[in-house]
């Protein structure tokens, strides 16, 4: 009975969506705002990667909200998982090969992550993507050596200060320019590493925050994994 109702629901939803899809102007978007942004963004923001220009410029407050959501999820995960009991059982560490491999990968992942963050305004990438790669470096360590623990205090300092840095850059623009998160510092030469004003700084703040956030969630989950003795 319940399955029948669910199937009816899904069938109805599929029919509705397909009926809509058949009428959508797909493949020839109106690009009302998009075209305008493509035209003015190179001059207004000065980032070669126009997706980053929209992400950190035109829709900067969205990005701040997004950071806040990730932070809220990490904080809520902390609330749910709480502190580990001191005498809880721990997973055994991985073998020699795994640990050596993890140690080898760790610095490489850090470098790649930082590179992706630093070039976010020029090439595909940016704070979120690079931050995830940074977090992955810590995931590798946690998975290979479950007995080693990340320091939660350090993580909370990094995520707190990086998030605050993003907002403070925005507030600086508010005081200086009258607009929260308005681009500052001049645009520089398009396509160079030091260009596009405050965008690379914002990218860096995002990258550190995302990396700390995800590494923190992973550390919490890994510590909660072993059931209490």
């Amino acid at each position: 009975m319940r399955n029948l109702a669910s199937l009816l629901f899904a069938g109805g939803l599929a029919f509705l969506l397909l009926a809509i899809a058949s009428q959508l102007a797909f493949g020839t978007p109106s690009m009302r705002v998009g075209a305008e942004i493509l035209a003015v963004a190179p001059d207004e923001v000065g980032a070669a990667n126009l997706v980053t220009a929209v992400l950190l410029g035109y829709r900067g407050i969205d990005t701040l909200g997004e950071l806040a959501i990730l932070f809220a999820a990490a904080t809520a995960a902390g609330v749910v998982l709480g502190r580990r009991h001191a005498n809880a059982r721990r997973d055994p560490p991985g073998g020699e090969v795994l640990r050596t491999g993890a140690d080898l990968l760790f610095p490489l992942l850090l470098v790649v992550g930082l590179y992706v963050i630093a070039h976010g305004h020029l090439t595909p990438g940016g704070g979120f993507q690079g931050g995830v790669i940074l977090a992955a470096a810590f995931f590798v360590i946690i998975l290979a050596q479950p007995t080693r623990h990340l320091r939660h205090s350090l993580i909370s300092w990094i995520e707190g200060l990086a998030g605050a840095a993003f907002i403070l850059i925005g507030l600086w623009a508010l005081v200086e320019d009258g607009d929260f998160l308005a681009p500052l510092l001049g645009q520089g030469a398009m396509g160079e590493l030091l260009s596009a004003g405050t965008l690379p700084l914002l990218s860096l703040a995002i990258g550190l925050k995302v990396g700390a956030e995800l590494a923190g969630i992973m550390a919490h989950i890994a510590e909660a994994e072993a059931p209490d003795a």
Binding site: P29, M31, V33, G34, A35, I37, L38, A41, L50, V51, A53, V54, L55, R59, D62, T63, E66, F128
Partner: peptide, 10 residues
């Protein structure tokens, strides 16, 4: 259009 790419990232 760059905007949907930003939206989807979010």
């Amino acid at each position: 259009d760059p905007i949907p790419q930003v939206l989807v990232l979010t």
